[in-house]
């Protein structure tokens, strides 16, 4: 298979080539939707944010700087839109914490796989937002430390600290619920 670079596809998509547009969507929308879903814990909102992210991408394509990495830029836009939504949620519901306990899930022997997954997703979405972002990017999506730090506009050291705290907190939460 011939190597196709992001820049080739971006140039063609900017000129209105439908196959290049589809290529970019197929390559990057799963990651963006995955990130927004984990961050927001709400599928509908996550899809809205994904759509807004790509709208911004389409507008940015004609003036695209070849030095910039499309994937990093796209995830950063999505992440910042998530932060905005989470901030508005906090402002509209001051003091209210995300729902973390579900009595139906407590007996470990009755935990079905789907319930475990739901418990993990809930626990990730309940992490402080930057910890959730670090964990999602590195542990769930396989971004390198460098990429994840660039997406989050932070240093690799700070990313590492967020990641360590996220894993510690997640382990404690899941242990309480007998998920891990």
């Amino acid at each position: 298979m011939a190597f196709v670079s992001d820049l080739d596809q971006i140039t063609r998509a900017a000129a209105g080539d439908p196959s290049a547009v589809a290529w970019l969507v197929d390559r990057y929308s799963p990651g963006v939707l995955g990130l927004t879903t984990r961050m927001l814990g709400d599928r509908m909102e996550a899809e809205d944010v994904t759509q807004e992210t790509f709208l911004r991408a389409w507008k940015a394509l004609p003036g695209w700087e070849p030095r910039a990495k499309f994937s990093t830029w796209l995830h950063r836009v999505a992440l910042n839109l998530c932060y905005d939504i989470l901030r508005k949620r906090r402002e509209s519901l001051p003091g209210e914490l995300p729902e973390m306990t579900d009595p139906e899930l407590t007996p470990p022997e009755r935990l079905m796989q789907s319930e475990r997954v739901k418990a993990i997703e809930t626990a990730i979405a309940a992490l402080p937002e930057r910890q959730a972002a670090a964990l999602t990017l590195c542990a769930l999506q396989g971004h390198s430390q460098v990429e994840a730090a660039e997406i989050m506009e932070t240093s690799e050291e700070a990313l590492e600290s967020l990641l360590a705290r996220a894993r510690r907190s997640l382990r404690a939460t899941l242990a309480e619920r007998s998920v891990a």
Binding site: A13, A14, G16, V21, A22, V25, Q51, F54, W58
Partner: peptide
């Protein structure tokens, strides 16, 4: 996502 693109581009 695809439908949004050509117009914007």
């Amino acid at each position: 996502l695809i439908a949004d693109a050509p117009k914007a581009a």
